Every structure is written in C-alpha cells, then in structure tokens.
Amino acid sequence: MSSMSKFRKLAGISALALAGLTAASVVNADTWRYAHEEYEGDVQDVFAYKFKEYIEDHSDHELKIYRFGELGESSDIMEQTQAGILQFVNQSPGFTGALIPEAQIFFIPYLMPTDMDTVVEFFRKSEAINKMFPKLYADHGLKLLKMYPEGEMVVTADSPITKPADFDGKKIRVMTNPLLSATYEAFGATPTPLPWGEVYGALQTNMIQGQENPIFWIQSGGLYEVSPNLTFTHHGWFTTAMMANQDFYQGLSDKDKKLVQDASDYAFDKIVKHIDGLADKALAKIEKASDKVTVTDLNEEQMGAFKAKAPQVEKKFIEMTGDSGKKLLDQFKEDLKNVQSD
C-alpha cells in the first residue's frame, strides 16, 4: 500500500473508531484504551504492544491499541486522553510542547548525544526525565509513565544539506512546536508547521522542501520517495512519552498502579533492544527501494557550522519557559554530564 493510500484509509476509519471507542468506554470498564502516533510495527507500536503484553499477562485487564490516524492526529488523541476517553497515550514532545513548553527541551540542537548507549543510560538515570518531567505533566492532567528514545533525527530535503546556507529558501516541515521552528530558523530554513498526515503530499507537491524524522519513520512513511536526499546532521534524537489520564491513574488500586508502572518499565526494556540497529536496517531498506536516494553524513567540521547556531535556540528555550525551563535545562546538562562520565 502506498503512503498516500495509508493516509486515505486511516482517515476513513477514524470517525468510526472514535464512535466505537466512546461506546466501549461505557460498556466495558475493564478494557483500557491506548493510542499512539505511528504505524503498525513502528517503535511506538512495538512499545504499546509490549505494554499490552505485560498488562494482559499479569491481570484480567484488556488493552485496545489505536494506531496513527485511527482516532485522528496527535492533537486529537491528546484531547481524548485529557477528556478520559483514552486511558493511555503516546505522544512526542514535538506536539506536547504546545501544552507543556518545557517539553521542547529535546529540540535544542546538539544538546543530546547521538550514541545509543549514552542516550539509553540518560533516559534510565536522568533526574530531569524521571523526577522533574512527571510534575510538569501532572499539571496538565497527565501521569507521565515513561519517556524513551526512538532514533536519531535525520533531515530529508530536495537537495543534499552540508551547511546552513543549503537551507536558504527551503520550507522545512516542523511539528507544531515553537522551539523546533526556532531551530530551523537558526539553521537558515523557513519552518512550516504541518500535521503528519499532510507531510507526504506537501513534499510531493513541493509545498515544502524537507522535513526531519528518525530514519525508520522516513522508511515506514515512504518519505524518501518524495524527499530523497537524507542528511545525518547528528543534532538530536527523537524522543517520545507514554502517559495516562491522571484521574484514571489516581483511581486505580495500588495493585493496578504497580501493574501499569511495571508494564511501562517492561516495555522500555524491550524497546531499547528493539531500536538497537533499527536505523541501519531502515536505511538499507530505503537504499534497496530507491536509486534516487542520497545519504550525507556530516563530519565534525560541517557539524560545527550547525552547532554554532545552537546557543540562540537554547536562549529562546529559556525565554519561552522562564525559571522552570532554566532549572530543567541545568539538570538536563548535569544528568548528561553524569552519564557521559560513567
């Protein structure tokens, strides 16, 4: 099935799925519902099904999972979770950043390392991730259960990117995230916020000239078909968060709260194994599928020109988030320092 056909099919079933979901919430209180932002077999889908596996193996509860498009876009599934229609949601800070400005910290370029071992260790041990973020999410009716990495961000465009000047005149799709827009402004591009369902068509019609995503998502979504020049800028990792409706979670028994926490820990352990080597496999699939694809891997000198833009994005983050963001950023850097020195 082509990428555009996927979008049409998913859009067609989303209204029916939402109607059924709302009805099910009345009929069967023991069936929990969980929506995420990706396709079958993608990282969030694997995480969700590992969470489901643990829940159903260790309790009488059932878990119904909804993939991208079945209940709408990212903003829709967040609204449904806050309203209590969904019990669980997986959403990246790229979208949550509009609700929780501090979550945009992941879009400060070159803040995060890109080697997997360090990244995974950071998510396991970070005080910012595991102690500070849950309080921020709770203020918006959300119980943060787990943040986890999906993969290094890769830029695709209508021509190879080796320096900031190569972004001149290019409209680059960004999530609805002010700091990500600031990053691409700093890089020299024109950031263009678009929901995911419109990205393939916008690239195909040259409404936009590029976008960023982990390589597995570029492969899964077929983005290389319409945006064939891939650049590894090494500016960060795609991060996502799995959370629950706060009222739902607080209403659980202590036994079920532990079940949910244990299930999210189990899914995290499984997903970090799953993503090990995933990028290489996805890139191999892309190169096999298309002879139009180019791959550019920036060297240290080339990265330096982009890294020089990072301080202005960091400054923008602090302007957006105030003292709360500054404290989070300081702790973030301290946590990174600690894991890199281990």
Rank of each mutant, 00 (worst) to 15 (best):
S3A: 15
F51P: 00
E301S: 13
I318H: 12
D115T: 07
N229P: 08
S126M: 12
V27F: 04
G210T: 02
S59A: 07
F7A: 13
K309S: 02
V295R: 10
V155G: 13
G169H: 09
T22I: 09
F106V: 15
E225Q: 11
L10K: 13
Y148P: 01
A35R: 03
D265G: 02
N229C: 02
V339G: 05
G12L: 03
M242L: 03
A103Q: 13
A128P: 11
S220F: 03
L278F: 00
E185M: 09
N206G: 08
K309F: 02
A202D: 13
A128I: 12
K50Y: 00
P228R: 06
Q87V: 11
Y184I: 11
Q312N: 03
G94S: 14
D265Q: 02
P149M: 09
N28T: 04
P149H: 04
N90V: 04
M1I: 06
D269T: 01
D335N: 10
S3N: 06
G151M: 13
T321I: 14
T183G: 07
Q80L: 15
L145F: 00
W217R: 00
E70R: 15
K257D: 07
F47R: 01
D256W: 06
S264K: 01
A128D: 14
D139K: 15
Q44S: 08
W196M: 15
I286H: 05
D254Y: 11
F187Y: 15
G72E: 12
S25Y: 04
D262M: 01
Y266A: 08
I105A: 10
K52V: 00
S264V: 05
M303C: 08
D342S: 15
A15H: 07
T296R: 07
T183D: 08
L71W: 07
Q209F: 09
F268D: 00
N229W: 03
K292R: 14
V199E: 07
E212M: 15
T233E: 11
E319T: 04
V155W: 13
P160D: 08
Y49T: 00
S324L: 08
M303E: 14
R33P: 06
L142E: 06
K316F: 08
I218T: 03
L283Q: 04
A267C: 01
F47A: 00
E70N: 10
W217C: 01
N90P: 09
P178L: 10
A279M: 05
T296Y: 02
I208K: 05
F167G: 02
E319I: 07
V43K: 00
Q87H: 15
M1H: 14
I161N: 10
T233H: 13
Q211D: 15
V260R: 02
Q91L: 05
F317H: 06
D297M: 10
T118Y: 10
K309G: 06
K143T: 14
